[in-house]
C-alpha cells in the first residue's frame, strides 16, 4: 500500500494538469516514503523525511505556488510527445534493475543498520565532518545562485 502511495503519488505529480494538485500528490509520495523507511527499521530517516520533506519543503512549495501563480493554473503537460517510447524504455529498465535486485544475494551489506540518534550525531560531526561542511558550501552556492536568478533584471542593472 505504501509502495502504491509512492509510485502513484509520483505519477500523479508529473501527469496532473493542476500544479496545486501536483504539489499535494507529491506530499502523498513523500509521506508514503516515510512509512517505507519506518518499515525498513530506519526510524530516524523516517522522522527526517516527515519533518523536512513533508513538513518544510511541501509547505514551502505550496506557498511558492500560491504567491507566484497568476491566473489559470491549468498548464498543458509538457512532455507528451514521446510518452509511449519513454514508457517502454522505463518499464524495460525497471524490469531489468528489479530482476537483478531481487536475484542478488546482498549479503552483509544489506543488514538494516538501526542506529541511535546519538551515534548518528557523533558520526556526523566526527568522521563525516568534512562531507557535512562541503554540503553546507553547496547550499550556500545554491542560495546565492537562486537569489541571483530570482532577482528582477532591473535590480541587476542598478548594482552593476
Amino acid at each position: 500500500m505504501l509502495a502504491t502511495g509512492v509510485v502513484g503519488g509520483g505519477l500523479a505529480v508529473v501527469t496532473l494538469r493542476n500544479i496545486i494538485h501536483s504539489a499535494i500528490a507529491m506530499m502523498v509520495c513523500f509521506g508514503s516514503l516515510a512509512g517505507m523507511y519506518l518499515l525498513l527499521g530506519a526510524g530516524i530517516v523516517a522522522a527526517a523525511q516527515v519533518l523536512i520533506y513533508l513538513g518544510a519543503i511541501s509547505v514551502l512549495i505550496l506557498f511558492a505556488i500560491m504567491l507566484t501563480q497568476a491566473g489559470d493554473a491549468n498548464l498543458p503537460a509538457p512532455f507528451h510527445r514521446q510518452v509511449w517510447l519513454a514508457a517502454v524504455v522505463t518499464l524495460v529498465a525497471i524490469g531489468l534493475i528489479g530482476w537483478v535486485a531481487v536475484t542478488t544475494d546482498w549479503g552483509a551489506g544489506a543488514q538494516a543498520a538501526s542506529v541511535l540518534l546519538e551515534e548518528l550525531a557523533t558520526t556526523l560531526f566526527t568522521d563525516f565532518a568534512l562531507p557535512f561542511e562541503i554540503l553546507s558550501l553547496l547550499l550556500l552556492a545554491a542560495i546565492i545562485g537562486a537569489i541571483y536568478l530570482a532577482r528582477r533584471p532591473e535590480e541587476d542593472e542598478r548594482v552593476n
Binding site: L137, L138, L140, A141, I144, G145, Y148, D156, E157, V159, N160
Partner: peptide, 21 residues
C-alpha cells in the same frame, strides 16, 4: 558580461564555488 550589464560579483563568487567543487 560588462557589455551586457550582467553582474561580475555573483559571477566570480559562483565561479569560485565551482572551482572548489
Amino acid at each position: 558580461l560588462v557589455s551586457r550589464r550582467l553582474p561580475l560579483g555573483e559571477f566570480n563568487a559562483i565561479l569560485l564555488f565551482s572551482l572548489t567543487g
